[in-house]
């Protein structure tokens, strides 16, 4: 048994190393964002909030932050609506060509973003909707709808299949049942899907970069700064973006958890 314990210790250290690797860039980026050196190294320089002052004074970054918020919230609403419709169709009905139907919503994440970026840029230019903020909204709704669909579909799985039929038997129309039974049941998942898709959209840069034209989002600004030179402002923006994304994820998680609790209670 001694060798078993030794193995456990070695494996524990190994797992810790993996976590170090995964979190090193995130943590270092936060440290660097408060570090006075332009080329951060060890030993670290002095503590400073210079980089934060710089980004807060930069009108372009405010503009980009505004664009990012508009894009991620609008894309989240559209993607969640589409995800809900598809999840419900998949849950309730069987029909011909259901395979291709589901492929239509589930495929986008399996195609590299750079390819989607090129395809969308070309198509959007062709039909005259490229270079606008709503171009990014449309693109992101396509890319994030599958995540919304997955979250809501999982929730529908937990619903008692007789619940809907019971509502019909009690005289509710299909529409009334949707409004008073299914949507309330799915509410936590819908909220969860909204935050999740917003978070994914908030970080996406490849497609945004291609289709946005002059309307840059925050990740696109980061991309352009990084292309030019080493500029610790990136760390400050990154830390900021991280806080926003994490808030969204934690909110999604809270709704997810509350939904678990409720289903246990009922």
């Amino acid at each position: 048994m001694n060798s078993g314990r030794l193995l456990n210790i070695i494996l524990g250290i190994y797992v810790a190393l993996i976590f170090c690797f995964v979190f090193a860039p995130i943590i270092f980026s936060m440290i660097f964002s408060f570090n006075s050196q332009r080329f951060p190294t060890i030993p670290l320089g002095d503590f400073t909030i210079e980089w934060y002052e710089k980004i807060f004074a930069d009108a372009d970054i405010w503009e980009a932050a505004r664009n990012s918020l508009i894009v991620s919230s609008s894309a989240a609403v559209i993607a969640t609506f589409l995800g809900f419709c598809t999840a419900y169709s998949d849950y309730r009905y069987t029909f011909r060509f259901k395979g291709p139907y589901l492929a239509l919503i589930l495929l986008p994440p399996t195609i590299p973003l750079i390819i989607m970026a090129l395809a969308m840029l070309a198509w959007f230019s062709k039909i005259g909707i490229s270079g606008q903020i709503y171009s990014i909204v449309i693109a992101h709704s396509v890319l994030t709808a599958p995540f919304a669909m997955a979250v809501i579909r999982l929730r529908l799985n937990q619903m008692d299949p007789d619940l809907e039929a019971a509502a019909w038997n009690l005289g509710g129309s299909e529409w009334a049942t949707m409004r008073h039974v299914i949507i309330p049941f799915c509410k936590p998942a819908i909220a969860s899907a909204l935050f999740l898709t917003a978070a994914v959209s908030f970080d996406e840069f490849a497609v945004s970069w291609f289709v946005s034209g002059l309307n840059k989002t925050l990740p696109v600004v980061i991309l352009e700064i990084v292309q030019g030179n080493i500029d610790p402002q990136v760390n400050a923006i990154g830390t900021f973006v991280f806080l926003i994304s994490m808030t969204l994820v934690v909110l999604a998680q809270i709704f997810f958890a509350s939904r678990q609790l409720k289903s246990i209670r009922s």
Binding site: A24, P25, I26, F28, S29, F32, F39, P40, A199, V200, D203, F205, P219, I222, L223, V226, I230, V234, N235, I237, G238, V241, F242, S245, M246, L248, V249
Partner: peptide
Amino acid sequence: FTSYLVRTFSWFV
């Protein structure tokens, strides 16, 4: 849910 770009930039440094 963290920016992949920022993480890459961090590795760069």
